[in-house]
Design a protein around this nucleic acid. Structure first.
Lengths: 226, 226
DNA sequence: GGCCAAGAGATTGTTAACAAAACCGGCTTT
DNA sequence: AAAGCCGGTTTTGTTAACAATCTCTTGGCC
């Protein structure tokens, strides 16, 4: 039996997690110059571990750093969000294809169960946006890990998804089109269950492409501003 | 006029660069547990900046870290290298497509010039493997930046290429098939020059796919071992 | 009145010492 | 004899003080 989570997590790890979520949730304004001691007080730690966490965040592109001038949260634009979706399209397409080839039957069954509970939540239409988004992340998360492609999962889960979530919070836009997305998810899982990698890739690419165009449209309508 | 390179580079940056190249070139054995003080002496710096660099490298997947147990260079397998090429295939395909849409005419002209000098070097057949590899990196580098997709370029140049280079050094395999690769490069640039993004993507994917199968074949023949 | 320069203040980069946890040896115990 | 326990030693994680750099303000000059 394992005790919750290993407390062996270092202070720098905590700082990294706290800062990452803070940035993603928009608690730290983009472009804002943030001082180290300010962060130290905020997260109750000293500069050593903090700088280590800062380095990791910079390496992941969530912070930009100018020597001797401090760090600031990365500035984001609507165009860059769309570029992110282009990357997601090809990478998650690959993930879906490899997941179709490599996921265990049990994993696929779990994935279908996930969609069932997801569907129930949508139909109840309560807490719709939040659960929708969470369910969406869960879905894509499982497929990324199911690809059995270590680096691919690392890039998706460690880099891209956090970026996308950051934009999502900034845009304060719920995922939108919940029913349609669920149907697309169902079809992707179907393809995976049939071990049809080519189809799974095609459907996933189309799914993300549709999401991208949805955002694009909202931007053109002026509904999304920064 | 700018003075060579800004000396404003911090010690942690130096450590990061040194360590990265050391890992990539295989000077640090994979799976080897390396002590911090050992590295401090080696690169003539103290533990503060070193730890910052270590964090960045861990975040990029070149090191693995166990709390209180030290860092070790990431262990690599032949299978993971092939997985890397799968990722390259889709990402660089996207890069080629976007490069075809967005590169300036000047950039395209430069790219063609690069291939010319590259061809000359191959025909002289002296220092073939080295220049071949360098030219190959240069080619892919230009297309990645030419995509004008910030995050895409960041992921390719900052993560994937270093990984691939690491494997290359470990396998001590030259790129192989120099003439064929050059021809493929030429065709890709042609497609880009004609602003045919779809074709550029197709050709790039096929190019990387061919490289992957080349490696796969060598592995099966037992020519590549770890 | 606006621009440039110099200095004070603050902030970042770096270093060295301190505390805690993991590894390794030998010992005891079954 | 093998396995588990225990303490010393090494190494990592953390902290606090020091040094170098940048920024902002103030003053002077054009």
């Amino acid at each position: 039996m394992l005790d919750s989570l290993p407390q062996t997590q270092t202070r720098a790890d905590e700082a990294f997690d706290c800062l990452q979520t803070a940035i993603v949730k928009g608690e730290l304004a983009p472009g804002e110059k943030i001082g180290e001691l300010e962060l130290c007080e905020r997260f109750q730690l000293t500069r050593g571990p903090l700088r280590e966490a800062l380095g990791r965040l910079e390496s992941r592109g969530l912070l930009v750093r100018r020597p001797h001038a401090g760090v600031k949260v990365v500035s984001v634009s609507a165009g860059e969000l769309l570029e992110l979706y282009r990357i997601r399209e090809v990478m998650e397409g690959l993930a879906a294809r490899q997941a179709a080839e490599r996921m265990t039957d049990q994993e696929i069954a779990d994935l279908q169960t996930t969609l069932d509970t997801h569907e129930a939540m949508i139909e109840q239409a309560q807490g719709q946006a939040y659960y929708q988004a969470e369910g969406d992340y869960d879905f894509h998360h499982r497929i990324a890990t199911g690809s059995r492609n270590t680096k691919l999962a690392q890039m998706l889960l460690g880099d891209l998804y956090y970026m996308v979530r950051m934009y999502r919070y900034r845009l304060s836009t719920s995922a939108g089109r919940p029913h349609m997305a669920l149907g697309e998810h169902r079809r992707i899982v179907e393809a995976i269950a049939q071990r049809d990698g080519e189809l799974a890739e095609f459907l996933m690419k189309r799914h993300i492409n549709a999401a991208r165009r949805n955002i694009e449209q909202k931007i053109e309508e002026g509904l999304l501003t920064f």
